[in-house]
Write a protein that binds this DNA or RNA. Structure first.
Length: 410
RNA sequence: GGAGGGUUGCCAGAGUGGUUAAUGGAGCGGAUUGCUAAUCCGCGACGGUGAAUAGCCGUCCACAGGUUCGAAUCCUGUACCCUCCGCCA
């Protein structure tokens, strides 16, 4: 959520973001409601002052007169505020200058690292490899779990945990506080994290008002909602490990085979809360980016970094870099990481504040980035490190976690 | 799932219908005394109106409603916490 004062004073910038994102929101209506709202507040506050005065004087007649007048204005105000708040939640974040304007075709590759392997044999995709090595079972996964279901078995199951643990440890060593968060979250956490109102249909619902989160970012952000940090307590750096659930409504027919797009997976996620300073935020953005790239480098996987265009990025982000990792089976790079600078868009919704050096209370800035998600990353590991006979060499950094260095056909 | 108790500011904690929510502690700022310690003074958040981090007004005692001229205080609903019972990995 943006600050209404900011919106009033920077209409052009906000408008530009809305247009560049092709977001569907009526800014004029919002500004009109804001005006009406403030007008009513002034009237209501005046009447309340009168009411308080009457109460002090124990003036029953005056009190009763004010009361009825107040009642109707308060009703009007609460109706307008409801509409106003609804609209406020739909205004997307502003865009940083770096963001290319346009649809996904405008995404900009800014870095390439590592060399895609050249196979002297006919390379297999991870579906074939998974079957051959007896480590992934899609047929029974679908039988039991439904569409997009999967079983990871044997070395596949162990590799999955190994790679997650490796990433988790990598961030812990960098000073991030490890967290296993709740994945059933209440509505406020999803709204506050900027997942809603936009992504509600992609989110599984549990009971009446609880949801299965699509990323640990949600509970990690909401963890300190309604809290005020002292300056000395910032920055806060968290690394979360959790399961993630996504309905993938809206992507029917896309990536229907394999481990690429599944309803449930695990992810190691980095989250930072820092002072409300764009330069400081950008510094952490680089840091989170480096952390993720290091993980891929240590795994020996080729990847590229992409700046997402205005229409391809999430509404809550001001700037997003995706990392796409080389997946031979697709013959292309596939998204494995997403790094976003959010400014105070989420923290304003969640009321995560801090006291700055002048004693003023401000909303912190927030950032989040994937450290690693599995099983999607297994696609890259299996396909990039396959040998002619279908066996797969395991990256050395994982050996201490897997306990094996190679997976071979049975 | 059943029964009971509770939720007040950063923390502790008083306050069961009447103006500005006691008091203590922490933290921050200032004053003062060679230093340290001590002492004294000041400091809640949010909204509206202001050029204003000035004044003024309003709101906030878990949340949402209600009763009343007036609600932290009375009533209803919801959430959460604690104790006991039951069930359970």
């Amino acid at each position: 959520m943006l600050d209404i004062n900011y919106i009033r004073e920077n209409i052009d910038k906000v408008k530009k973001s809305i247009e560049a994102r092709k977001a569907d929101i009526d800014l004029e209506k919002l500004l009109k409601l804001d005006g009406e709202r403030r007008e009513l507040i002034t009237q209501v506050d005046g009447l309340r002052a009168k009411r308080n005065e009457a109460a002090r004087e124990r003036d029953k007649v005056k009190g009763e007169r004010v009361k009825s007048e107040l009642k109707s204005l308060e009703t009007q105000l609460s109706e307008i505020e409801k509409e106003y708040k609804d609209l406020m939640l739909q205004v997307p974040n502003i865009l940083l200058e770096e963001v290319p304007v346009g649809d996904a075709t405008q995404n900009k590759i800014i870095k390439k690292a590592g060399e895609p392997p050249k196979f002297s044999f006919k390379a297999k995709d991870h579906i074939e490899l998974g079957k051959l090595l007896n480590i992934i079972d899609f047929d029974r996964g679908v039988k039991v779990g439904g569409f997009r279901g999967y079983y990871l078995k044997n070395e596949g199951a162990r590799l999955h945990w190994a790679v997650l643990q490796f990433a988790f440890d990598h961030l812990i060593q960098k000073g991030f506080s490890p967290v296993v968060p709740p994945v059933i979250n209440r509505r406020f956490a999803l709204v506050g994290g900027g997942q809603f109102p936009w992504g509600e249909e992609d989110t599984y619902k549990v009971g009446d008002e609880d949801f299965l989160v699509g990323t640990a970012e949600i509970p990690l952000m909401a963890m300190h909602s309604d809290e005020t940090f002292e300056l000395k307590d910032l920055p806060k750096k968290f690394v979360g490990l959790s399961s993630c659930f996504r309905t993938e409504i809206g992507s029917y027919g896309k990536d229907t085979k394999g481990l690429y797009r599944v309803h449930e997976f695990y992810k190691v996620e980095q989250v930072v809360l820092c002072e409300a300073d764009e330069q400081e935020s950008l510094g952490f953005f680089e840091e989170l980016q480096d952390n993720s790239e290091e993980i891929l480098q240590q795994l020996g996987l080729p990847y590229q970094v992409v700046v997402l265009s205005s229409q391809d990025m999430g509404k809550k982000a001001a700037l997003t870099y995706d990392i796409e990792t080389w997946m031979p089976g697709r013959g292309s790079f596939g998204e494995t990481h997403s790094n976003s600078i959010v400014l105070d868009f989420q923290t304003r919704r969640l009321k995560i504040k801090y006291r700055d050096k002048d004693g003023n209370v401000k909303f912190t800035h927030a950032l989040n980035n994937t450290a690693l998600a599995s099983p999607r990353i297994l696609i890259a590991i299996l396909e990039n490190f396959q040998q002619e006979d279908g066996s797969v060499k395991i990256p050395e950094v994982l050996h201490r976690y897997t306990g094996f260095s190679m997976i071979s056909p049975k």
